Computed example of a mutant assay.
Amino acid sequence: MNSKNTLLVVLGAIVVIALLFGGWFLFTYNGIVAAQESVDGQWAQVESQYQRRADLIPNLVETVKGFAAQEKDILENVTRLRSQWSEASTQEEKMEAARGMDSALARLLVVVENYPQLRSNENFLALQSQLEGTENRVAVERMRYNDRVREYNTRIKQMPASIVASMYGFTSRSFFEADKGAEVAPKVKFT
Protein backbone atom coordinates (compact mmCIF):
# COMPACT_ATOMS: atom_id res chain seq x y z
CA MET A 1 0.00 0.00 0.00
CA ASN A 2 1.39 3.35 -0.91
CA SER A 3 1.26 6.47 1.23
CA LYS A 4 -1.63 7.94 -0.75
CA ASN A 5 -3.84 4.93 -0.03
CA THR A 6 -2.79 4.92 3.62
CA LEU A 7 -3.69 8.58 3.92
CA LEU A 8 -7.12 7.94 2.35
CA VAL A 9 -7.77 5.04 4.75
CA VAL A 10 -6.77 7.17 7.75
CA LEU A 11 -8.90 10.10 6.55
CA GLY A 12 -11.81 7.74 5.88
CA ALA A 13 -11.49 6.28 9.39
CA ILE A 14 -11.40 9.79 10.89
CA VAL A 15 -14.53 10.78 8.92
CA VAL A 16 -16.36 7.62 10.00
CA ILE A 17 -15.40 8.20 13.65
CA ALA A 18 -16.46 11.85 13.41
CA LEU A 19 -19.79 10.85 11.86
CA LEU A 20 -20.40 8.23 14.54
CA PHE A 21 -19.52 10.69 17.30
CA GLY A 22 -21.68 13.41 15.72
CA GLY A 23 -24.59 11.00 15.35
CA TRP A 24 -24.26 9.87 18.95
CA PHE A 25 -24.03 13.48 20.12
CA LEU A 26 -27.16 14.54 18.18
CA PHE A 27 -29.08 11.46 19.30
CA THR A 28 -28.15 12.11 22.94
CA TYR A 29 -28.92 15.83 22.79
CA ASN A 30 -32.28 15.26 21.09
CA GLY A 31 -33.17 12.58 23.65
CA ILE A 32 -32.48 14.98 26.52
CA VAL A 33 -34.54 17.71 24.83
CA ALA A 34 -37.41 15.26 24.26
CA ALA A 35 -37.30 14.21 27.93
CA GLN A 36 -37.28 17.85 29.04
CA GLU A 37 -40.26 18.64 26.80
CA SER A 38 -42.07 15.62 28.23
CA VAL A 39 -41.57 17.01 31.76
CA ASP A 40 -42.80 20.44 30.67
CA GLY A 41 -45.83 18.95 28.92
CA GLN A 42 -46.74 16.89 31.94
CA TRP A 43 -46.33 19.92 34.20
CA ALA A 44 -48.91 21.69 32.00
CA GLN A 45 -51.32 18.84 32.76
CA VAL A 46 -50.71 19.18 36.50
CA GLU A 47 -51.22 22.94 36.25
CA SER A 48 -54.44 22.45 34.33
CA GLN A 49 -55.91 20.22 37.04
CA TYR A 50 -54.85 22.58 39.83
CA GLN A 51 -56.40 25.47 37.91
CA ARG A 52 -59.61 23.47 37.61
CA ARG A 53 -59.56 23.01 41.38
CA ALA A 54 -58.78 26.69 41.95
CA ASP A 55 -61.78 27.59 39.79
CA LEU A 56 -64.06 25.44 41.99
CA ILE A 57 -62.92 27.07 45.24
CA PRO A 58 -64.91 30.34 45.05
CA ASN A 59 -68.16 28.39 44.61
CA LEU A 60 -67.24 26.01 47.40
CA VAL A 61 -66.35 28.87 49.74
CA GLU A 62 -69.61 30.70 48.99
CA THR A 63 -71.68 27.58 49.59
CA VAL A 64 -69.94 26.79 52.87
CA LYS A 65 -70.01 30.45 53.92
CA GLY A 66 -73.81 30.43 53.98
CA PHE A 67 -73.85 27.54 56.44
CA ALA A 68 -70.66 28.08 58.43
CA ALA A 69 -70.15 31.82 58.81
CA GLN A 70 -68.25 31.30 62.07
CA GLU A 71 -65.52 29.44 60.15
CA LYS A 72 -64.38 32.75 58.63
CA ASP A 73 -60.64 32.17 59.20
CA ILE A 74 -60.64 28.88 57.31
CA LEU A 75 -62.67 30.34 54.45
CA GLU A 76 -60.36 33.35 54.17
CA ASN A 77 -57.31 31.09 54.21
CA VAL A 78 -58.68 28.96 51.37
CA THR A 79 -59.41 32.10 49.36
CA ARG A 80 -55.97 33.57 50.07
CA LEU A 81 -54.22 30.35 48.99
CA ARG A 82 -56.29 30.22 45.81
CA SER A 83 -55.06 33.75 45.03
CA GLN A 84 -51.47 32.66 45.68
CA TRP A 85 -51.94 29.88 43.12
CA SER A 86 -53.25 32.35 40.54
CA GLU A 87 -50.42 34.81 41.19
CA ALA A 88 -47.60 32.26 41.24
CA SER A 89 -45.27 32.73 38.31
CA THR A 90 -42.73 29.92 38.70
CA GLN A 91 -43.22 26.20 38.88
CA GLU A 92 -41.83 26.12 42.42
CA GLU A 93 -44.24 28.87 43.56
CA LYS A 94 -47.16 26.99 42.04
CA MET A 95 -46.08 23.77 43.77
CA GLU A 96 -45.91 25.57 47.12
CA ALA A 97 -49.30 27.22 46.59
CA ALA A 98 -50.81 23.88 45.60
CA ARG A 99 -49.50 22.26 48.78
CA GLY A 100 -51.04 25.10 50.79
CA MET A 101 -54.38 24.62 49.04
CA ASP A 102 -54.23 20.88 49.77
CA SER A 103 -53.91 21.57 53.47
CA ALA A 104 -56.48 24.39 53.56
CA LEU A 105 -59.07 22.37 51.67
CA ALA A 106 -58.52 19.46 54.03
CA ARG A 107 -59.27 21.74 57.00
CA LEU A 108 -62.33 23.18 55.22
CA LEU A 109 -63.71 19.74 54.46
CA VAL A 110 -63.17 18.66 58.08
CA VAL A 111 -65.26 21.68 59.15
CA VAL A 112 -68.03 20.54 56.80
CA GLU A 113 -68.40 17.41 58.95
CA ASN A 114 -69.90 19.64 61.67
CA TYR A 115 -72.73 20.86 59.39
CA PRO A 116 -75.07 18.01 58.39
CA GLN A 117 -77.44 20.43 56.65
CA LEU A 118 -74.55 21.53 54.42
CA ARG A 119 -73.68 17.96 53.51
CA SER A 120 -77.23 17.50 52.19
CA ASN A 121 -77.26 20.76 50.18
CA GLU A 122 -77.47 20.08 46.42
CA ASN A 123 -74.98 22.81 45.49
CA PHE A 124 -72.48 21.52 48.00
CA LEU A 125 -72.95 17.91 46.87
CA ALA A 126 -72.35 18.90 43.24
CA LEU A 127 -69.25 20.91 44.18
CA GLN A 128 -68.00 18.13 46.42
CA SER A 129 -68.38 15.65 43.55
CA GLN A 130 -66.48 17.94 41.17
CA LEU A 131 -63.78 18.50 43.79
CA GLU A 132 -63.45 14.77 44.39
CA GLY A 133 -62.99 14.14 40.66
CA THR A 134 -60.50 16.98 40.40
CA GLU A 135 -58.49 15.73 43.39
CA ASN A 136 -58.25 12.34 41.72
CA ARG A 137 -57.11 13.96 38.46
CA VAL A 138 -54.54 16.03 40.35
CA ALA A 139 -53.14 12.89 41.99
CA VAL A 140 -52.86 11.09 38.66
CA GLU A 141 -51.26 14.03 36.85
CA ARG A 142 -48.84 14.68 39.70
CA MET A 143 -47.80 11.01 39.61
CA ARG A 144 -47.28 11.19 35.83
CA TYR A 145 -45.28 14.39 36.22
CA ASN A 146 -43.02 12.76 38.80
CA ASP A 147 -42.53 9.80 36.45
CA ARG A 148 -41.41 12.16 33.67
CA VAL A 149 -39.11 14.02 36.07
CA ARG A 150 -37.55 10.73 37.17
CA GLU A 151 -36.98 9.68 33.54
CA TYR A 152 -35.47 13.06 32.65
CA ASN A 153 -33.25 13.24 35.74
CA THR A 154 -32.03 9.70 35.11
CA ARG A 155 -31.25 10.52 31.49
CA ILE A 156 -29.18 13.61 32.27
CA LYS A 157 -27.23 11.85 35.02
CA GLN A 158 -26.26 8.74 33.04
CA MET A 159 -22.87 8.60 31.40
CA PRO A 160 -22.03 9.65 28.75
CA ALA A 161 -25.24 11.71 28.30
CA SER A 162 -24.33 13.66 31.44
CA ILE A 163 -21.47 15.23 29.46
CA VAL A 164 -23.91 16.58 26.85
CA ALA A 165 -26.35 17.65 29.58
CA SER A 166 -23.69 19.62 31.44
CA MET A 167 -22.39 21.19 28.21
CA TYR A 168 -25.83 22.61 27.44
CA GLY A 169 -26.99 23.45 30.96
CA PHE A 170 -29.63 20.76 31.44
CA THR A 171 -30.27 20.53 35.18
CA SER A 172 -32.29 18.21 37.38
CA ARG A 173 -35.96 18.96 37.93
CA SER A 174 -37.75 18.84 41.27
CA PHE A 175 -40.34 16.23 42.07
CA PHE A 176 -43.81 17.45 43.06
CA GLU A 177 -44.46 15.74 46.34
CA ALA A 178 -47.57 16.27 48.40
CA ASP A 179 -47.10 18.27 51.57
CA LYS A 180 -46.17 15.80 54.27
CA GLY A 181 -48.33 17.74 56.74
CA ALA A 182 -51.38 17.91 54.49
CA GLU A 183 -54.40 15.99 55.57
CA VAL A 184 -55.83 15.64 52.08
CA ALA A 185 -55.93 12.15 50.67
CA PRO A 186 -56.11 11.65 46.91
CA LYS A 187 -59.81 10.88 47.29
CA VAL A 188 -62.12 13.22 49.18
CA LYS A 189 -65.50 11.67 49.89
CA PHE A 190 -68.30 12.41 52.33
CA THR A 191 -71.47 10.53 53.02
Results as ranks from 00 to 15, higher is better:
V9Y: 10
L127I: 14
F67K: 01
Y145C: 11
A54N: 07
L109K: 02
F190L: 10
A165Q: 10
Q117K: 11
K187V: 15
E177Y: 09
V184P: 00
V16K: 02
S89H: 15
F67C: 13
Q42A: 11
L108G: 00
W85F: 15
Q128S: 14
Q45A: 06
Q84W: 05
A185K: 12
M167I: 10
W43H: 04
D179W: 01
S174G: 11
A185T: 11
A165P: 14
N77Q: 14
E62F: 06
R119F: 01
N153A: 07
N5I: 06
E183G: 15
A44P: 01
V15T: 13
K4V: 11
A97S: 04
G22K: 00
L26F: 07
V111G: 01
L11D: 03
I156R: 01
F190I: 11
E71N: 07
I14D: 00
E96K: 10
Q128F: 08
A98C: 05
R52E: 11
E62T: 13
T28S: 15
L19I: 15
Q70G: 14
R142G: 07
E87W: 00
L7V: 14
R80D: 10
A69Y: 01
L19K: 07
D147K: 04
M143F: 09
K189Q: 13
K94W: 01
E93S: 04
T79H: 05
E62H: 12
K94R: 12
S174R: 05
I74R: 02
N2A: 06
N114D: 14
W85S: 02
R144S: 08
S3F: 03
N5V: 06
Q130S: 11
L125G: 05
S129T: 15
W43Q: 04
V149K: 03
P160T: 13
N146Q: 08
G181M: 10
L8F: 06
N153F: 06
E135I: 04
E183L: 06
V149P: 03
K180T: 15
Q51N: 15
G41T: 12
V15A: 12
A185P: 02
L20S: 12
V149Y: 00
V110M: 07
I74L: 12
E47A: 11
I17T: 14
Y145T: 06
F190E: 11
V164T: 06
N59P: 07
E37W: 03
Y115Q: 05
E71Y: 05
N5E: 07
N2M: 03
Q36P: 07
A126R: 04
F21A: 14
I17A: 15
V184L: 15
Q91G: 06
E71S: 08
A69T: 15
E47N: 14
A68S: 08
I156H: 04
S86G: 13
R52D: 09
L125H: 00
V64T: 09
E177R: 09
D179Y: 03
T134G: 12
L8Q: 12
L125R: 14
M167H: 07
S48K: 10
N121I: 12
E132P: 09
E141M: 10
G31H: 07
Q42P: 02
P58L: 11
R52P: 12
K187C: 04
D179L: 00
N59G: 13
E122Y: 05
V112R: 03
